[in-house]
Design a protein around this nucleic acid. Structure first.
Lengths: 342, 342
DNA sequence: CGCTCCCGTGATAGCGCTCCCATTACACTC
DNA sequence: GAGTGTAATGGGAGCGCTATCACGGGAGCG
C-alpha cells in the first residue's frame, strides 16, 4: 500500500497513514489535532509524518472544508503616496504576525480602481478568503458593505465615513489626539491657537479638527473660522496654509497641524516669516514620523499606536472568522510626544 | 441537471455548463481560455458564467493542476527597522502589481527566526507556492539555496553574499552609485574625501564602499583607511562616525555617507564642529529618502529605482515559474540627485 | 463511394483531503 | 451469558476542477 508514487510528488496522507499502520482517516485526525485517537496511533502518525516530511496539501483540505485559511490585506487606495508611508508597512507587519500565529495565510492585494475592487469582490464571493483587512484612507466603505453582504467578514482601518454602525473598524483616537495636541499648546501659554486641518474627505482629517475644536471649547475659547486653514496632509500644503494663517492672523502663537508633514511645512513658513519656533509660534504635528525627530527644532507630535492597530485589526477579524461577534468600534489611545517645537 | 445546490454555495462549473447547454469539460475549456472551442459554445459559457457570477474554485483547480498560482513575498529579516522603511513597502507594491497582472496571488510572509524559516521551507516543499520573492537585507542565501533545491524558484533582492552564481537576484548598482557620489564630490572640488561606510555584513554596505574606493582610484588618489569610518546605516551611527573622522582628519572637505540617515547624522556633526555644509564639507547620501528633501541644506543623494526593482524581481520570477531561465544577475542603474549639500 | 483525418465535444477518472457512518473491541451492567 | 454503552478505527463518498481519452461527424482525398 505504501508503494512509491510518481517522482518528486510530495508525500500524501495516504503514504503517512500506511507508514504508521493506520487508516487515512486516523492519520487525518491526528494531524488535525482531533480527539478520539489513541496515544499509540498519534505517536505513530506523528513520527511517520516527520520521517516523510509530510506537509498537508492545502488545496485539498480547502476544497473539502470550504475554508481558505487565508485573510486578504486589501489596500483600496489609488494614491501611490500610500506606499511611501512607513505607517502601512508597519501595520501590515503587525497584522501578519497575528494572522500567521493563527495558522492562516495573508494575501496582499491592492485594488486601485473600481473595476479591480469589483473583481476582488467577485473573487471573495468565490470563497477564496475567509476575511478581509481593509485599508482605505478615505474610509470609503462601499466595498466593505458589499463584502459583509457576501458573508465575508471585514475589519477596516479607520472609521467608516458613512458611520454605518454594523461595520467593524479599528481606529486611532484622532479626536483625543487633536484635543491633547491643542491643549498642550494652550497649557504652554499659547493665546491664539490655529490649526492646519487635514483633508476633510478622510475621517482622520475630520476627527483631528474636531479634537482641536473640543480643546478650545474646553478652555472656554471662541472658535474662529479664521484660525482654521485647509491642508492636504503634505509639506507643501502645510507651508501654504501656514502662510495664509500668518497673513490673516499675525498674532498666532500656536499651531496644531493634523500631520507631521504639514507641521514641517508650517515650521518652514513660520521661519520664513521671521518668527521663531517655538518662541514666537509653537507647533504640534500628528503621526510621529521619523522625520519629526530630524527637524530643527524637533517636532512635538502625536504618536499613533501603529503596531497595536494592526494587531487589533487582525485579532478582531480572526474572532469574526471564528464566528464571534466582537465590538464593532475599537478606538485606540494615542500619545503626545513632547519635543522642542512647543 | 442544473438543479439548485445547497443554500449559499457559490455556483460551480457544473451549473455554468448546464446553463450554457454544454458539458463541464467544454465549460472548463472556455474558462481556461483553451483553444478548440466553437465560437457558439464559448459565448454561451461566458454568458452563463456572467449570469451566475461564477468564480472558479481555486482550491479545486490547484488540486489537479498542482500549481498554487501563488507567489510568496518572503521577508527573512529580524530587524523591525525594516518595517519602518518605505523602501520595502514600495517594493512590495511594485512586485504585487506584476504578480496580480499575471493572475497570481501574493502571499506576504515573514520568517524572523530560523525555526520559522524552516517551517516555511517545509510549507513550500508541500507545493503551496509556485515561487518566492526573497527579501533579506543581509543577502543571507541559505534559505534561497534550500528553496531552489526543493524546486521552488526564487529571486532575491540584493546580491547574495555567498556569490553563488546559480542564484537569481536583482540589485541596485550600489558600486556605481557609491562611485558616482564620490566622483561628484571630487568634481565639485573636494580634495580630501572621506566615507562613512554601511554595515559590512550587508552587500549594499560592501558595494557602496567599493564604489567609493573605485572613484578615488579613478582620480589617481591614494586610499587611506583613516578616511573610512564604520557606520551602521543609522543617524546616530553617522553622527559618531563623522565626529571621529573630523577629529582624525580636520581637513576633510567631502563625505560620502552610504545612507541618507547616516548623512543626516554626519551633517549634524559637521555643523556641531563649527563647519558649514556644503561650503566647508560637502555631503552626499544614499537612498533618497523623503527626509533628504527636508534637511537644511537639502541633501544630495543617490536614488535607487525601487519600483523598477520590485517589478523586475516579479517579472524574473514569473519567467522562472513559467520554465524559462532568465539571466541570474540583474543590476539596475541608480541616479544621483543633486541638491544643496554639495 | 469509402477512406482517413481532425476538430469539437462529452464521459470519466482522479487530484488529496475531510467527514459521515458503520464497525470493531472491550469494558460494564443486570 | 446476553445486552448495552463507549472509545477507537476504517471504509467510502465526494469537494470542484482539469486532463485524458474516445467518439461522432463533416471535409478532403484517391
Amino acid at each position: 500500500m505504501a508503494q512509491d508514487r510518481s517522482p518528486d510528488r510530495p508525500p500524501t496522507l495516504e503514504v503517512v497513514a500506511a507508514r504508521a499502520g493506520v487508516s487515512r482517516a486516523t492519520a487525518s485526525r491526528v494531524l488535525r489535532g482531533a480527539t478520539n485517537v489513541s496515544e499509540d496511533a498519534r505517536e505513530a502518525v506523528l513520527q511517520a509524518a516527520r520521517e516523510t516530511a509530510y506537509a498537508p496539501n492545502h488545496a485539498a483540505r480547502s476544497l473539502v472544508t470550504r475554508r481558505s485559511d487565508a485573510i486578504a490585506f486589501l489596500v483600496a487606495e489609488t494614491e501611490d503616496r500610500l506606499f511611501t508611508e512607513p505607517y502601512f508597512f508597519a501595520l501590515l507587519h503587525a497584522a501578519h504576525a497575528q494572522i500567521a500565529a493563527a495558522g492562516l495565510q495573508l494575501l496582499f492585494i491592492t485594488v486601485p480602481t473600481a473595476a479591480e475592487a469589483a473583481h476582488f469582490e467577485h473573487y471573495a464571493a468565490g470563497g477564496h478568503v475567509d476575511g478581509v483587512l481593509l485599508l482605505s484612507l478615505h474610509g470609503d466603505d462601499r466595498l466593505q458593505q458589499s463584502l459583509e453582504r457576501l458573508g465575508v467578514p471585514t475589519v477596516l482601518n479607520g472609521r467608516p465615513l458613512s458611520g454605518d454602525p454594523s461595520l467593524c473598524y479599528v481606529d486611532s483616537d484622532n479626536i483625543a489626539g487633536g484635543r491633547a495636541a491643542t491643549e498642550l499648546l494652550i497649557q504652554r501659554g499659547a493665546k491664539r491657537v490655529a490649526t492646519i486641518a487635514g483633508r476633510q474627505d478622510m475621517c482622520a482629517g475630520q476627527d483631528r479638527l474636531a479634537g482641536y475644536q473640543l480643546a478650545l471649547q474646553g478652555f472656554g475659547r471662541r472658535l474662529s473660522q479664521r484660525l482654521i486653514a485647509a491642508g492636504d496632509f503634505t509639506v507643501e500644503g502645510g507651508h501654504r496654509a501656514m502662510r495664509r494663517l500668518l497673513a490673516a492672523n499675525p498674532d498666532i502663537d500656536g499651531v496644531f497641524a493634523a500631520s507631521d508633514l504639514m507641521a514641517i511645512g508650517a515650521m518652514r513658513a513660520i521661519e520664513q516669516s521671521g518668527r521663531r519656533v517655538p518662541e514666537d509660534v509653537a507647533v504640534v504635528g500628528f503621526d510621529d514620523l521619523r522625520e519629526a525627530e530630524l527637524t530643527v527644532p524637533q517636532l512635538t507630535t502625536v504618536r499613533q499606536p501603529v503596531a497595536d492597530l494592526g494587531r487589533t485589526m487582525a485579532q478582531l477579524l480572526l474572532q469574526r472568522v471564528a464566528g464571534d461577534d466582537p465590538p464593532h468600534a475599537t478606538v485606540l489611545p494615542v500619545e503626545v510626544v513632547k519635543r522642542d517645537s512647543t
